[in-house]
Nucleic acid binder design. Sequence first.
DNA 1: ATTATTTACGAAATCGCTTTCGAGAAATCC
DNA 2: GGATTTCTCGAAAGCGATTTCGTAAATAAT
Lengths: 343, 343
Amino acid sequence: MIKLTLKDIASHFSVSVSTVSKALHDSHEISGEVKKKIQKFAKDNHYRPNKVALNLVNRSTKSIGVVIPNILNYFFVQVLYGIEKVANERGYSIISCVTDHSLKKETMTLEMLSSGSVDGLIISSVASERQTKTHLENIKDIVDYQIPLVMFDRVMDAIDCDKVIVDDLEAGYKATKYLLDTGCKTIALVNPICKTKIGRLRIGGYKRALKERNIDFDEKLVIPIEPKDDLDFILSFILNDKNIDGILALDEITAVKTMGIIKARGYHVPNDIAIIGFTNGQLSKYVTPALTMISQHGSYIGETCANRLIDRIESISTPGVYETKVVKTSLIVRDSTRKIPLG
Amino acid sequence: MIKLTLKDIASHFSVSVSTVSKALHDSHEISGEVKKKIQKFAKDNHYRPNKVALNLVNRSTKSIGVVIPNILNYFFVQVLYGIEKVANERGYSIISCVTDHSLKKETMTLEMLSSGSVDGLIISSVASERQTKTHLENIKDIVDYQIPLVMFDRVMDAIDCDKVIVDDLEAGYKATKYLLDTGCKTIALVNPICKTKIGRLRIGGYKRALKERNIDFDEKLVIPIEPKDDLDFILSFILNDKNIDGILALDEITAVKTMGIIKARGYHVPNDIAIIGFTNGQLSKYVTPALTMISQHGSYIGETCANRLIDRIESISTPGVYETKVVKTSLIVRDSTRKIPLG
DNA sequence: ATTATTTACGAAATCGCTTTCGAGAAATCC
DNA sequence: GGATTTCTCGAAAGCGATTTCGTAAATAAT
């Protein structure tokens, strides 16, 4: 049994291809008798129209490309989940590509996707920070070519398109404020995403919360870390030098690891040191004590992206006017922070 | 600026479409002069050949469909990661579809994918258990239509195709044996995947290990649980009735939750009760104590699937002869189990 | 000078499908 | 019975590329 085409069916009944096509579309142009036999034959032999040919004719593929830096990151998986959910509901499938934080890969991926394989793109660009000029051009091409584009989380200001971002400044503020409210005096900030704008925004929120309490910002309390760094080693300085009683960790895994180190050193969480992490995922709920986290509502972000994009694809949105949707975060209070004093 | 086609370029230079096509392919048939100007124009205007049209002529899409039950499950994400990795290396992109454990969705997805949108399929079928007859037909169609297919993890015996599976029986055996070796006498098994074959296989391994030690299998120690069940409530019976000193949990989240409950009830892990979980993911490493887990090497499974599939697509494998690759698990010993006595 | 061979390009087929248009035959009308 | 409408179907164009084949002109060979 081999893939059936219209032509095959046509020659089987000695009719023309157009007749078969119309018959299968139940066109009134075809007599009931002929329609019936063709439809039956098609069904019996599991005929399915070739998608690629259809895509060509319709100049649409009913699929959207999703480009994310890393699929092992729970946040992105959540976003992907949200995207896939509404895409599916609205009849689209998704082509997912991970860039592994590599600019080159991202460029190649975009190159590939923007040549007709998808009707639109949702991307969280690794280039949001270290944007080279050529890469910027690359993305600009996409919007120039009228390919609907939605950027999320790691967006580029220079690109004019729909965006869905997290209110990271407010999140940093909210988290810091909570620590202060629950009695923390000296709050360190562990930053595993030091090169990103979202990292800077969160630090901005941190600073604002400190300022509000007239606490001087201490540069030394902000600790940039790279993936390869020995967290334990780096933290030891701070822990020895400063009298830390609160820590903000800018992603989940760092929060978890930091807490592990703190506990191993004999501190009690939250009584000696309270911790708040960013990007609520699977881990934080199950570590001991359960971590208080900033949730970014990844799935919601994904849904929003997908809806925006599909609206754009189907020309439901107003052409030319792009929106930036800011998704608020939530503070999920668990046991790595003290309770707010009732007073 | 709008999408450029060969025709556009052709009419711009008043040449034929074929000339342009050849020029862009640097064909010797075209004079250097003409080639140069066409190539320059194409580059300046960011011409990119339409993928869909190419797919049609080449009768290949250079993309593979991946169908998984759930993307929020770390195991599947790992597999996806592995697939994406080698697919990418070998020049394929992936269309990922999640079925949410819904048979209907899976059917629809397969229907969609098997009509030319992809060159091959990798699937972990939710129907591996509750396989209705029509669904089976559905999947059979795929192999009948010569669409290369690789099934993994949740495979269907009735389907003749390449498969990558986990040695679940051996895994169950290995885990149980380790618990016995470290002094456990009464081992409960918490089964959150009671309807699946892999669940049964793991239980098979559990039984074999018990038998080897001449321990009678006690039906009551095997606890099936459903997603909606109150685990704490269900566990209370066992904990009260039996003198449990070891627990096997058939997935990660259940292992973590079970340990939480055990600890909350005042048992010490691993001294009072040791725990081994299945499907090593992100959680187990960071909970306290860190969980001893059976790792299924998701990423490796993904890589294997992708390589097999692409070999098949590119006719590197022998047609007609399908292989089933059994991937061995590893026991990752952490702190939720006692150490093997030296003797 | 005649023939043979490149060179350089265009026409046309093809991939599989949709859709418009045209046209013969049958059915309806006046 | 002739004109018109309705049925039913096929031919052909088009989607955007590749590729085979044909051919005129230019060059080379005899």
